[in-house]
């Protein structure tokens, strides 16, 4: 099958001082070249942890299980040096807060140059030229002087553009983007999203876009994966999932949106509290808040099942929902 990245049964347990946190549990994902996959869910559902686990960026208290296959190799067991080559050159990463992600005491030029030095054979002049080209590419004018500046001299949107330029320096085939617009002004959010989409198609790059905004998913993603309490609820082509959900949680999410098809609406909280993930439920984690719940939802864990070509859902009500839609 034509896959760039394949995540199999990914699990992340944090061994914290106060006990264990089951942040990610049994997540399967696949991304094809050039594809934009949205990973959506409420805050705390494990999206960022999933993304960081893929690039093995979590710290030592994270115990990771499963496999992350990149060109046939499991990134989770790859030796450090080989992993460094995949990071940056194969898989680029951008974070939510550009101000926090850029080193405050190094110039933007140096922070781009680091990637170029690590992954390209370019000489100093070649790297300078490439750095200017990258700033042009992400829409930062006056590149030559901007390269000498420091992050605090950039505006929020410009910082996010700079972070994208750094992540793209070595031409990765996949971009992991963790809520790349959440920290920005609303007016700038659209610009950055459009920029990312343009780059994805111009550079024939794939993207895993983490967001809690269904509107963003609707307007940008080819496929979507919905997460709840560290588990995957359903995956499938964006239009199909958003128009005819086959998981009761996705259904609730969509119903919680104000108005029909409100494209830019944020997720509204569903009645009830998100579950505690220090004691994972033996059944479906959404059961306490679910209007479709059956008795077995509390005891039995719904397995991920194919419900249509390219679509899968882990919900006992998947068929009822399909009919309702």
């Amino acid at each position: 099958m034509n896959e760039l990245l394949r995540v199999e049964q990914l699990g992340v347990v944090f061994h914290a001082a106060r006990g264990r946190v089951y942040a990610v549990d049994g997540v399967d994902l696949a991304i094809a070249p050039g594809e934009v996959l949205g990973l959506v869910g409420e805050s705390g559902s494990g999206k960022s942890v999933t993304l960081r686990a893929i690039a093995r960026l979590l710290h030592e208290e994270a115990h990771i299980t499963g496999r992350v296959l990149w060109q046939g190799r499991d990134l989770l067991t790859l030796p450090a040096r080989a992993l460094e080559q995949v990071r940056g050159a194969g898989i680029g990463t951008i974070f939510q807060e550009p101000m926090a992600a850029l080193n405050p005491v190094l110039s933007i030029g140096l922070q781009i140059d680091e990637s170029l030095r690590a992954h390209t054979g370019l000489d100093a002049a070649g790297r300078r030229a490439r750095a200017r080209e990258l700033l042009d590419l992400v829409g930062i004018a006056d590149a030559a002087s901007r390269l000498r500046q420091y992050p605090h001299e950039f505006s929020g949107g410009m910082r996010q553009r700079a972070m994208i330029a750094i992540a793209l320096a070595a031409n990765p085939k996949l971009l992991l983007a963790d809520e790349p617009t959440t920290a920005l002004d609303v007016t700038i959010q659209d610009q950055i999203l459009r920029l990312l989409l343009r780059l994805v198609s111009e550079l024939s790059m794939a993207m895993l876009l983490v967001t809690h905004d269904l509107g963003v998913v609707a307007s940008t993603c080819d496929r979507v994966a919905v997460m709840y309490a560290g588990r995957l609820c359903e995956t499938g082509p964006t239009a199909q999932v958003l128009h005819a959900p086959r998981h009761a949680y996705t259904d609730a999410l969509l119903r919680a949106l104000p108005g029909e098809g409100a494209a830019r609406a944020r997720l509204q909280p569903i009645p009830g509290m998100p579950p505690r993930i220090d004691h994972p439920s033996p059944g479906c984690p959404f059961a306490p808040r679910c209007t479709h719940a059956e008795p077995r939802c509390d005891r039995e864990r719904p397995a991920m099942q194919d419900v249509a070509p390219g679509r899968a859902s882990a919900c006992f009500a998947q068929d009822r929902l399909g009919v309702a839609a």
């Binding site: 460094e84 807060e97 926090a100 992600a101 680091e114 990637s115 972070m163 750094i166 070595a170």
Partner: peptide
């Protein structure tokens, strides 16, 4: 544990 240290690791530069 600063985010910029994770970002530097994510770039694939040497440890």
């Amino acid at each position: 544990r600063a985010e910029y240290v994770d970002f530097a690791r994510a770039k694939g530069i040497a440890a």
